[in-house]
Amino acid sequence: MRRAMLLAGILATLIPGPPPAQADTDVHYQGLRIPAPAGWEVHHLGPRSTECLRFDRHAVYLGSAGENQDCPAHAVGRTTAIHVEPLAAQTNALVTGLLARDGAGGGGRLPGLRVHDPAAHEILIAVPQAGAFITGSYGSDVRDLERVLNRITLEEPTPDGAAERHTGAARPRRWVRGDGFDTCRAPSLDAMKAWRKDFVAANVYIGGVSRACPDGRLSHDWIAAVRGMGWRLIPTYVGPQAPCGPHRVNFTPDSAVDDARASAEDAAERARLLGLRRLTPIYYDMEAYSRHDPECREAVLDFLDAWTRKLRRLGYVPGVYSSVASAIRDLAAAKGIKKPSAVWFAHWDKKSDPWKDRYMSRDWWPGHRRIKQYRGDHRETHGGYTLNIDNDALDGYVR
């Protein structure tokens, strides 16, 4: 018996057991959280992408497929796979046609329109709240696909914590891609109209004890007017700064949490008075500080954790603006805190792609949740109006 047990023990060390189970991987796209099953590939598509979008392999495809896909000459078969892309005109038309034929269905856990096309072995879901369109493919059993689709969720809760109800009308997507600028005070409406030809978004400083410029022209009517011109806005709050920063009004390690909560309450109230409804992103402006002071760094993380939690409870989307070399990097590396939904990072290298910054991993705030301030204080003239601005490149949350 002892020899048999000894032999079994030796064999157990020589013969490996079954490999440990792999965990699903969360991927993010336009405010959707998509749990990719273990073993699935994740492909990021785009206008210049040559990746072949194919449904004969398990994969998650994110973005619109490129015009020149490098596909095999011959491929047959279908399995469980999904493609998530912007809710564009052509996909809207496809959904409309299928709805006319088959009627509307619910979107499972997602608020939106859902169509099952058994002839094509596909389920199509339009999610207007995220500006996203999902195509799901399946092989012999639709239930395999349904298990994957039913785990996709919207990342941001509504103010009461429940999923938004679909009203049947598509809402403007909450992110934008393009050129933006920020300046200390709200420009004139004439300047905003002239500059609209060259920019899609502009920052507005809505309050805070460290804000340098007063409200000036900024008002409920000003917001309504520029939104009517097609502007998307980046609301920003400039409250107390890091204990080790060079600014006059600072929080302390002991006051960080209370000061952050008070800042979030004031920011939400000011946003409301300006007509910026709930689910509007508000970015906290945390200016650069010394990362080599561990007590200061921890105080900043405590502050931004409390800001994020409180602002989210108040129904607004928490964001943070800071230098890529200070708060942005510290937030990315932090464990055990609530991180902002979106970031606006400063790196004045004059390179306008927010996804190719050498200090920003692509895993940090993926899925249209980035704004890059890539050029600092200078003057530009557009349409005969000159402003002193910073330049921004957007693929991120705005109002």
Score class of each variant (00 low, 15 high):
residue 335 K to M: 09
residue 383 G to N: 02
residue 372 K to H: 13
residue 295 E to S: 14
residue 298 E to G: 12
residue 374 Y to E: 03
residue 294 P to F: 00
residue 337 I to W: 05
residue 376 G to H: 05
residue 338 K to F: 12
residue 258 D to W: 01
residue 283 Y to W: 04
residue 277 R to T: 08
residue 367 G to R: 12
residue 279 L to R: 15
residue 259 D to P: 14
residue 257 V to W: 03
residue 364 W to C: 06
residue 351 K to A: 09
residue 327 A to Y: 03
residue 363 D to E: 10
residue 250 N to L: 10
residue 373 Q to N: 14
residue 260 A to S: 10
residue 273 L to G: 13
residue 248 R to E: 06
residue 295 E to D: 13
residue 281 P to W: 04
residue 285 D to G: 13
residue 373 Q to D: 11
residue 384 G to V: 05
residue 252 T to W: 07
residue 340 P to V: 00
residue 363 D to C: 09
residue 290 S to P: 12
residue 273 L to Y: 08
residue 280 T to C: 11
residue 332 A to Y: 14
residue 253 P to Q: 01
residue 370 R to C: 14
residue 259 D to F: 02
residue 280 T to N: 06
residue 356 K to I: 06
residue 362 R to M: 06
residue 369 R to Y: 03
residue 373 Q to P: 15
residue 279 L to P: 00
residue 273 L to M: 06
residue 287 E to N: 15
residue 347 H to L: 08
residue 335 K to R: 11
residue 352 S to N: 13
residue 306 A to E: 00
residue 384 G to S: 07
residue 326 S to T: 15
residue 335 K to F: 08
residue 255 S to Q: 00
residue 337 I to L: 10
residue 337 I to N: 03
residue 299 A to F: 11
residue 326 S to I: 01
residue 355 W to E: 02
residue 330 D to R: 00
residue 338 K to S: 14
residue 375 R to G: 13
residue 249 V to E: 02
residue 377 D to G: 07
residue 271 A to F: 07
residue 325 A to L: 01
residue 316 Y to F: 15
residue 287 E to Q: 14
residue 265 E to I: 13
residue 249 V to M: 04
residue 313 R to A: 08
residue 286 M to W: 09
residue 279 L to N: 07
residue 310 K to I: 06
residue 282 I to T: 02
residue 322 S to A: 15
residue 366 P to S: 13
residue 255 S to W: 09
residue 283 Y to N: 08
residue 310 K to L: 04
residue 371 I to Q: 03
residue 356 K to W: 03
residue 299 A to T: 01
residue 294 P to Q: 03
residue 269 E to V: 07
residue 264 A to R: 00
residue 347 H to Y: 11
residue 361 S to E: 02
residue 250 N to T: 10
residue 295 E to W: 00
residue 329 R to E: 01
residue 281 P to G: 12
residue 284 Y to D: 05
residue 327 A to N: 08
residue 377 D to Q: 07
residue 263 S to P: 14
residue 365 W to P: 12
residue 357 D to M: 04
residue 248 R to A: 12
residue 314 L to S: 02
residue 276 L to Y: 06
residue 263 S to M: 09
residue 248 R to C: 04
residue 251 F to M: 00
residue 248 R to V: 01
residue 321 Y to S: 06
residue 323 S to H: 11
residue 292 H to P: 02
residue 321 Y to E: 10
residue 286 M to H: 14
residue 309 R to E: 05
residue 348 W to A: 07
residue 372 K to L: 13
residue 324 V to M: 01
residue 332 A to H: 15
residue 348 W to H: 15
residue 369 R to F: 01
residue 346 A to S: 12
residue 360 M to F: 08
residue 368 H to K: 14
residue 325 A to H: 15
residue 369 R to E: 09
residue 279 L to Q: 14
residue 379 R to S: 09
residue 276 L to V: 10
residue 362 R to N: 02
residue 386 T to V: 05
residue 281 P to L: 04
residue 295 E to A: 11
residue 375 R to H: 12
residue 348 W to K: 01
residue 339 K to V: 02
residue 366 P to L: 09
residue 297 R to I: 01
residue 350 K to R: 15
residue 289 Y to V: 11
residue 357 D to T: 11
residue 334 A to R: 04
residue 351 K to P: 14
residue 278 R to L: 09
residue 304 L to Q: 08
residue 323 S to K: 02
residue 332 A to I: 04
residue 292 H to A: 09
residue 353 D to P: 15
residue 275 G to F: 03
residue 304 L to A: 08
residue 377 D to H: 07
residue 260 A to E: 06
residue 266 D to G: 14
residue 333 A to C: 05
residue 269 E to G: 11
residue 269 E to L: 12
residue 347 H to M: 00
